[in-house]
Design a protein around this nucleic acid. Sequence first.
DNA 1: TCTGGGATAAACAGTG
DNA 2: ACACTGTTTATCCCAG
Length: 673
Amino acid sequence: MMVESASETIRSAPAGQNGGVGSLSGQADGGSGSGTAGTAPAAGRDGSSRDTASGADSNGEMSSTELLQFQQQQALQVARQFLLQQASSLNSPGNNDSKQSASAVQVPVSVAMMPQQILTPQQMQQILSPPQLQALLQQQQALMLQQLQEYYKKQQEQLHLQILTQQQAGKQQPKEALGNKQLAFQQQLLQMQQLQQQHLLNLQRQGLVNLQPSQASGPLQALPQAAVCPTDLPQLWKGEGAPGQPAEDSVRQEGLDLASTAATATSFASPPKVSPPLSHHPLPNGQPTVLTSRRDSSSHEETPSSHPLYGHGECKWPGCETLCEDLGQFIKHLNTEHALDDRSTAQCRVQMQVVQQLEIQLAKESERLQAMMAHLHMRPSEPKPFSQPVTVSADPFPDGLVHPPTSAAAPVTPLRPPGLGSASLHSGGPARRRSSDKFCSPISSELAQNHEFYKNADVRPPFTYASLIRQAILETPDRQLTLNEIYNWFTRMFAYFRRNTATWKNAVRHNLSLHKCFVRVENVKGAVWTVDEREYQKRRPPKMTGSPTLVKNMISGLSYGALNASYQAALAESSFPLLSSPGMLNPGSASSLLPLSQDDMGAPGEPLPSNGSSSPPRLSPPQYSHQVQVKEEPAEAEEDRRPGPPLGAPNPSTVGPPEDRDLEEDLPGEDMS
DNA sequence: TCTGGGATAAACAGTG
DNA sequence: ACACTGTTTATCCCAG
């Protein structure tokens, strides 16, 4: 069974090229880690700080302490206003209210949803009952809330500290001329960046450290990949003038013009009023940190006299890591190396955007989750923690490093993608009876909807090899792929195949050879595989008419209760709109997926809609013949396949659907073979 | 129970 | 000799 695994693994390594995939690896756990870092109820603090800030505005003379507080508050306020401004400016174009609810946010929702879906098989196996599902949802929610709260807290605390330090140093700095307000804001920006980076680093670090077998998949998939990938941050922070850094470039160009920054922000939501914390994980330190001077509460393990940017004897400024013997030295370093300049500001902006993204996503997802839970009559509370503190963790797949969970032993689990309503994955055994696309939603749409999911979750896709291969081929411009390219597609599109390399390649080859729908064409460069759509459609007469069976599969196959069935159905309909916005996709995936929609639309071969509610596009094979009329010939005759009339116009009927066109293209190839 | 489809495993051959 | 590709056969499982 696993004989090949060794060599396969090695060979598939190159496939890693696809790998941009896991840019977010290792963050998931970070979420948990940071979450447990003991943060204070940010939400509450948040509100208070804002209020007090406004009140402080009227102050004329104040003590140094008051001044500090005032500045801090102001900074926060300014920052918030800025954020709001961004939100409105971003949304206004589309006349969306600054209210900025989920719909308006340009956030890769699908990605955002990940945390809710990415679970290790083992974990998912525990979620076979409604109560467990509920628990999972709650946990996920709690996690997100925690993250958000932590961000707030950190921002506030660090802002405070930063102000203090800057204040001290500011006396000797020329930039003092900037004025308190601006300085405060600058500091705020700096802090935000620092915080964000620290957080991300922390997440990543933990993600690597906490890679426990049962927590391979990651929640932080929720991070805005489309916007600023955590992995990109270091570059952004460091490589100031690095070309090819749009965000940064814009940042630099904009200089300190805050208003213009809005343009760079990919999205933003109103000051995330941290969703009314259904906090299952009540944050430990509930102190009103904001106004109190230094008090290291958050994840900073430093002593009271420490600085959030200073830890373990080194500067924690993004990409700095300069060693500083003591706090004093550090502060000096901070003021000299990370002074208020364009660079720092730019970094800050980047950081800010990241924070915004996260906040938006968090708020959005929280909102969604609540709505979902409400719909499902689930109570948003009830922590009901799982055995594992954090069921979701980063998905380290990309690098193919630690992928403990789904082992060959338990390669397949009930874990299902959000949008997938199909499939009959039986918990037992390696996905036997993988729903062929004929029984569930169209693979293309399904794939499109859950692209990110499959890409990051080590879940076996509920499609047959044949359908997957076909999809891979059809996604390419010329509808043809070499075997290796098919391999790459598999690994690129599915985390599962990045990990479980033992048999699938063999299976792919087997399928290519076995199914007549796959035609090997001798190409200049070698042999490529194409899809004979007609044959593919013939493969199996659509016995089932969709919904009934599908539903049955969904429920029985998964042992899910009605609740889960409906839940999944709901997910299938609502989640992962990512494909609707190609821009949110990773370059690679985006391009590869583009054809999908097309495929969905015109693909005659596409199976019945998963929901089955809609009228079956294809009632019977015959109906398809119109497209492929060319081949009435027995499925067997290989030669017959060669379009007799075909050559010139292989598929006379190829008028409509894109695929028909493709078919035409393929046919010539057949001749070649 | 039979049958068909799909997955898996493995043997084998051809090629570079 | 080896790796890759492609074909084929056998077996098992599942669903209809």
